[in-house]
Each structure stands twice: as structure tokens, then as C-alpha cells.
Design a protein around this nucleic acid. Structure first.
Length: 303
DNA sequence: GGTAGACCTGGACGC
DNA sequence: GCGTCCAGGTCTACC
């Protein structure tokens, strides 16, 4: 079965996929040669499907292929989820108008930068974000991979590949297993607590995708999640399309320091100050800035 | 409100 | 091979 989904121009499938490191995290698999992205996903019905995402001919959208025969409701769910993951209808025209006048962002529109790859559910993105904190990128890849391997539902025709675990499945686990076998370390209780809250209905992360709370209030709600601090909240807000806060981590301190402070140690306030006048586009300007300092997470992975 | 120390893991390094 | 140190954000207790 095949779906062709249009995107608001400008759109580049490759730009979205390579917007950050998510395509290296299970259950995503990126084919480096073709640029195609595979994603195992468990639908609301419980069925696990393999989605092959690729640039549509002409580059104006995305083509979704799956070996599964989807009924009407399942096809609509896949279209909705993929639309969210790739931000197909997002509009960056205001950002581009400003970026055109900024040499370090001059290519943003031509390269269709702005969209960042997201997981199918905000629960998945929240867990993944917690697993990026206080560890190396290789550690994040390992933890997410093990979590999917141990708790994800398998694809019927390819059982070694699994979907990201549902909150309900993770909620049935326990801290000792997550800590010692999944090797999440001290993050184990955070992930378990999050899964239990989501599965029990005390939390509805999926609703965060569409709610219209002012960003500071949404941030406050995210900060109330154990394991989510200022960096993780800003990262999650970016994934929700809110760019008013910067995800200041050690990488941010490094690139800003080399860009404007001759490599001298700086504090988070100086990172914020560097992008203060970008207002609601702060996060995007920061994320797609053409830094002088070229180190990024990929260096660590291939080191 | 600000700060110090603890939390885990894996990699680098010295022996 | 073993032990030690360090980097990576967040939480909690304390001032």
C-alpha cells in the first residue's frame, strides 16, 4: 500500500530527516545510500506496521509505503502520524523573511530548513529526550535501542524489528529491570513514572501537540515531568513547534563560545543573549545557524 | 532563588 | 586488565 502526502513548500525530505539525530534512534532506520527512512510503528489498533518514508517524486512531499494492507481508519492514522513526524503543513515564511537578511542563515529557505524530525507520539519523543540528558550520544542510541528491543511490539514479518514501546507496556515494567537490564541508570524511575502517568491517564502528552497554552505555561507543564529540566523542556518545545527557549547543553555552550567569545568558557545566559532578538524564532535560528565550530553529535558516534 | 552534591554510564587514560 | 577520572543534565537538600 502506498500513500502520497503533500507538504507546504518549501519542503525537503532530506532536510527534515537530517535535522537532528533522531533518525539514528530506534525504531528509525536510515538508509544512508537511498536516504529512505524506515519506521516500525504500533497503530492504535495494536497492529505493528513497517513504514517506508521517502521523498515523493518532484520532492514536494513524502511517499509512504507499507507492506501491510491498511483499512481506511489505519491509512488515515498513518497519514496523520507521518504528517506530524515530518511537519508537512508547517509554515516558516516569517522565519525565512528574517533569515534571508542573516548571512549565517541565508541558506535556510533554499534548503527548506525549519522542520525537525519527530516521533509518531509525543510520549516517544519525551522518553527519547530524557534519554539524551547527562549521557553521550552513543549512550542515548544504546538506551533507546535496548528499550525498543526489550519492550517494543515486533513486526509480524520481521520480528527482530520492533515499534517503540507503548506507555502501557512500559508501565508494566519496574525500576529494577529498567535500571539493570535496559541500563537506563538513574533515569529508570523517571521513564517508569512517565509511562505510568501516561498509561493511567493522569498525563496526556499527545494533547500537547495541539494545545494552545502560552509557551511559558507549556514549559512549566513539561518541567513538572521528572527528568525534564530546562534543556529537555526547550528541546521538547522545539519538537512541538515552539522556539522561544533554547536547549542549552554542553554543545550549545561550545559553539556559541567559539562563535562570539573566542572559545572562552561562557554560561547559559550568554547563549540566550546571543539569540535574544530572534523572539519566537530563537530556537530555530540557533538550531540551523551555520556555526564556525563544526563539531556535532555525529563526530562522537563515528569516533 | 542559588548552590553543592549525588545520580549512572562509558570512554579515556595511566599503571 | 584494573582502577581512576571525567563528561553529560537533573534532582534534592540545604542555606
Amino acid at each position: 500500500m502506498q500513500l502520497n502526502l503533500p507538504a507546504r513548500p518549501p519542503f525537503s525530505f532530506s532536510s527534515v530527516v537530517r535535522s537532528h539525530g533522531w533518525m539514528q534512534l530506534a525504531p528509525f532506520i536510515l538508509d544512508q545510500d537511498s536516504g529512505d527512512l524506515r519506521y516500525a510503528h504500533q497503530l492504535a489498533s495494536g497492529r505493528v506496521v513497517d513504514l517506508l518514508l521517502q521523498a515523493a517524486p518532484g520532492g514536494e512531499g513524502v511517499r509512504v509505503k507499507t507492506g501491510a494492507d491498511l483499512d481506511k481508519a489505519e491509512a488515515a492514522e498513518v497519514a496523520r502520524k507521518v504528517g506530524w513526524m515530518l511537519g508537512l503543513d508547517m509554515d516558516f515564511s516569517t522565519f525565512y523573511a528574517r533569515a534571508r537578511r542573516t548571512p549565517k542563515l541565508a541558506q535556510a529557505e533554499a534548503e527548506a530548513r525549519g522542520r525537525v524530525l519527530r516521533s509518531a507520539t509525543f510520549f516517544e519523543d519525551t522518553v527519547k529526550t530524557i534519554l539524551t540528558t547527562n549521557t553521550s550520544w552513543a549512550g542515548t542510541i544504546r538506551m533507546v535501542g535496548t528499550l525498543v528491543e526489550q519492550f517494543g511490539a515486533p513486526l509480524p514479518d520481521e520480528p527482530e524489528r520492533r515499534a517503540f514501546p507503548t506507555p502501557g507496556r512500559l508501565a508494566q515494567s519496574d525500576v529494577a529491570t529498567l535500571r539493570n537490564e535496559t541500563r537506563l541508570g538513574y533515569r529508570a524511575p523517571y521513564v517508569l513514572e512517565l509511562a505510568q502517568a501516561e498509561a493511567g491517564g493522569e498525563l496526556d502528552l499527545e494533547a500537547y501537540k495541539t494545545n494552545d497554552l502560552p509557551t511559558p505555561e507549556l514549559r512549566k507543564a513539561l518541567l513538572a515531568i521528572k527528568g525534564v529540566g530546562p534543556y529537555a523542556a526547550a528541546n521538547l518545545l522545539m519538537l512541538l513547534g515552539r522556539y522561544d527557549y533554547l536547549p542549552v547543553d554542553s554543545w550549545a555552550l561550545k559553539v556559541v563560545s567559539h562563535e562570539w567569545h573566542a572559545g572562552e568558557p561562557i554560561d547559559p545566559a550568554e547563549v540566550e543573549a546571543a539569540f535574544e532578538d530572534w523572539g519566537q524564532w530563537k530556537g530555530l535560528a540557533f538550531w540551523f545557524w551555520d556555526w564556525d565550530y563544526k563539531w556535532d553529535y555525529k563526530d562522537e558516534e563515528t569516533a
